[in-house]
Simulated scan of single mutants.
Amino acid sequence: MSSRPLTGSSAADAVAIGREQTRLRVIEAAIGLLTRGGRDAVTTRAVADAAGLQPPAIYRLFGDKDGLLDAVAEHGFAAFLATKRVDPDPPDPIEDLRAGWDVAVEFGLTNPALYTLMYSEPTRATSAAFKAGMEILRGRIRRLAAGGWLRVDEELAAQIVHATGRGAVLTWLSLPEDRRDRALLTALREAMVTAVTNQQPAVRDAGPAGAARALHAALPEQTALSGAEQHLLREWLERLTADR
């Protein structure tokens, strides 16, 4: 059976697929070196050798070593994102928050070298996969707010959850193995839960802050108000949520 010659577009597609496969092979080789020997082991020559390429290929694909490390970090964020499971209507929003925190921490403990690289530079917060993961977290926070469970405003709550998870992993990894105690992780998680949530829905409290947060969370679904009215209502609600 004779094969048809590739058209211009299909030939370009084949080249793009081959380039992406090579790129992934290099990233996986870099992750292997990172896992076994730490960041210092990830040199362009070592990565090229592990991927079966010549060093100039690394520069063609990633620009330089920093570009390669950025790609490795992005791959890590994407892998972490794939571990997230989202329940749009969890039976217990606080347990859902705990479960999400546990998943994030466990990923860091399972992939220590990769996790450290992912969070070693603030600029990596621009990663598309990192932003997608934060949107999942903000969705959890929004459900807490809509149910009146949130003690603080949504942005602060997201920052607390993220910071405690990241801090828990990096602190754990900094400890000698014989001093690592899972009780530390549990204590940090529960401190996070206490900081951002109420044990009972805040709308049951006498103060207006919890009810204001719940209404603020539901406001994007409001269609009866004009844009100017929604803006004014948000301003009022934000002032009420600050009344603690």
Results as ranks from 00 to 15, higher is better:
residue 187 A to F: 05
residue 236 W to D: 04
residue 242 A to F: 01
residue 207 G to N: 09
residue 59 Y to Q: 06
residue 110 T to Y: 13
residue 43 T to Y: 05
residue 195 A to Y: 02
residue 128 A to H: 11
residue 92 D to P: 07
residue 139 G to Q: 04
residue 90 P to Y: 07
residue 2 S to T: 12
residue 195 A to M: 09
residue 13 D to F: 10
residue 95 E to H: 12
residue 68 L to R: 00
residue 154 E to A: 15
residue 17 I to Q: 11
residue 6 L to A: 13
residue 140 R to P: 00
residue 24 L to E: 13
residue 18 G to A: 14
residue 13 D to I: 09
residue 177 E to G: 11
residue 13 D to L: 13
residue 164 T to Y: 12
residue 240 L to H: 04
residue 112 P to D: 06
residue 200 Q to R: 14
residue 243 D to I: 14
residue 45 R to Y: 09
residue 161 V to H: 06
residue 215 L to W: 02
residue 172 W to T: 11
residue 152 V to W: 00
residue 152 V to K: 03
residue 186 T to D: 14
residue 173 L to R: 07
residue 92 D to S: 10
residue 219 L to P: 03
residue 54 Q to G: 13
residue 11 A to L: 11
residue 173 L to S: 07
residue 65 K to M: 03
residue 29 A to N: 04
residue 236 W to G: 00
residue 41 A to H: 05
residue 23 R to H: 03
residue 213 R to G: 09
residue 32 G to Q: 02
residue 37 G to N: 06
residue 113 A to N: 08
residue 214 A to P: 03
residue 2 S to L: 04
residue 166 R to C: 04
residue 91 P to D: 06
residue 216 H to V: 07
residue 152 V to S: 03
residue 206 A to V: 14
residue 169 V to P: 00
residue 18 G to N: 08
residue 17 I to G: 04
residue 165 G to W: 02
residue 48 A to F: 05
residue 48 A to C: 03
residue 197 T to E: 04
residue 14 A to G: 01
residue 12 A to Q: 12
residue 100 G to L: 07
residue 167 G to E: 02
residue 115 Y to C: 08
residue 51 A to L: 01
residue 234 R to Y: 01
residue 40 D to P: 02
residue 200 Q to T: 14
residue 115 Y to W: 13
residue 87 D to Y: 09
residue 36 R to K: 09
residue 82 A to F: 02
residue 115 Y to N: 05
residue 51 A to P: 01
residue 241 T to V: 12
residue 132 A to R: 10
residue 173 L to D: 02
